[in-house]
């Protein structure tokens, strides 16, 4: 009995050592949310520019021109991936044996990154993608697929189609930071996969604040924070 207990404790210790710990409240450094290409977050290709197909570049310019009214995030739809990570709002990561859970302040979105090795739910238009993850040492690697074509990648009109596929890597690099890396491919929009990197910084003592959408008398959609005025 005692030996079995010791074995259990030992295997638990090994299990813990073989994974990371991403739990906590975090927020991205930098300005990836404004414009990925000017924020200096694209690490591959070395040019820092998104490798668009020529016709897709034209669409980006059109999106940029009408961004005030067309940006899905400004109209408070769920932000999509990887955009949700780079926003200037907090997120909270919870973990259990089944999954890693990311709750985003923005649009009260959440994602469940399943760890049980089951395959993607293919072909469904998830705004936040369908996430299947595993630990590689202390790095959480998430494969995200089954996207809708309804989200943008930032506030400058960078976009994707429903062929988007993202591989995310979350690595705890210090008690205060997570290195977040996303490799993005979408053969109908980009000529090659590309990669961005953002630092998530711990927000000690912070708690997520609700963000909800309300429609004004003109039919426009606005984010509303939980203040006395929103009562």
């Amino acid at each position: 009995m005692r030996i079995r207990l010791l074995c259990l404790l030992a295997s638990g210790a090994v299990l813990h050592a073989a994974t990371g710990d991403l739990r906590g409240v975090w927020k991205a450094d930098g300005k990836a949310y404004l414009n990925l290409e000017t924020a200096g977050v694209i690490v591959d290709p070395p040019s820092g520019k998104i490798p668009y197909r020529p016709e897709a570049r034209i669409r980006v310019a059109e999106n940029f021109a009408k961004r005030a009214s067309a940006d899905p995030d400004a109209r408070c739809f769920q932000p999509g991936v990887p955009r949700a990570t780079g926003l200037p709002y907090r997120l909270q990561i919870l973990e259990n044996a089944r999954a890693v859970y990311i709750v985003y302040e923005r649009a009260h979105s959440y994602r469940i990154l399943y760890l049980d090795g089951r395959p993607h739910n293919d072909g469904l238009p998830y705004t936040m993608g369908d996430s299947r993850a595993h630990w590689e040492g202390s790095t959480l690697v998430a494969d995200v697929a089954s996207f809708s074509d309804q989200t943008w990648l930032d506030g400058a009109g960078h976009y994707h189609s429903d062929q988007l596929h993202v591989v995310e890597r979350y690595t705890r690099t210090s008690p205060e930071t997570i290195a977040y890396e996303a490799t993005i491919e979408d053969p109908t929009v980009f000529t090659a996969p590309w990669k961005l990197r953002v630092t998530l910084r711990r927000q000690p003592g912070a708690e997520l604040t609700e963000d909800e959408c309300e429609v004004d008398s003109n039919g426009a959609r606005h984010h509303v924070a939980p203040s006395k005025d929103s009562k």
């Binding site: 708690e207 609700e210 909800e212 929103s230």
Partner: peptide, 22 residues
């Protein structure tokens, strides 16, 4: 509706002037 609550269990006091759907 992706309604979500993350409920602290650590004795944290309620927030003041906070009026939220959830």
């Amino acid at each position: 509706e992706h309604s979500v609550r993350v409920i602290p269990l650590n004795g944290r006091p309620h927030r003041k002037n906070y009026w939220a759907w959830m």
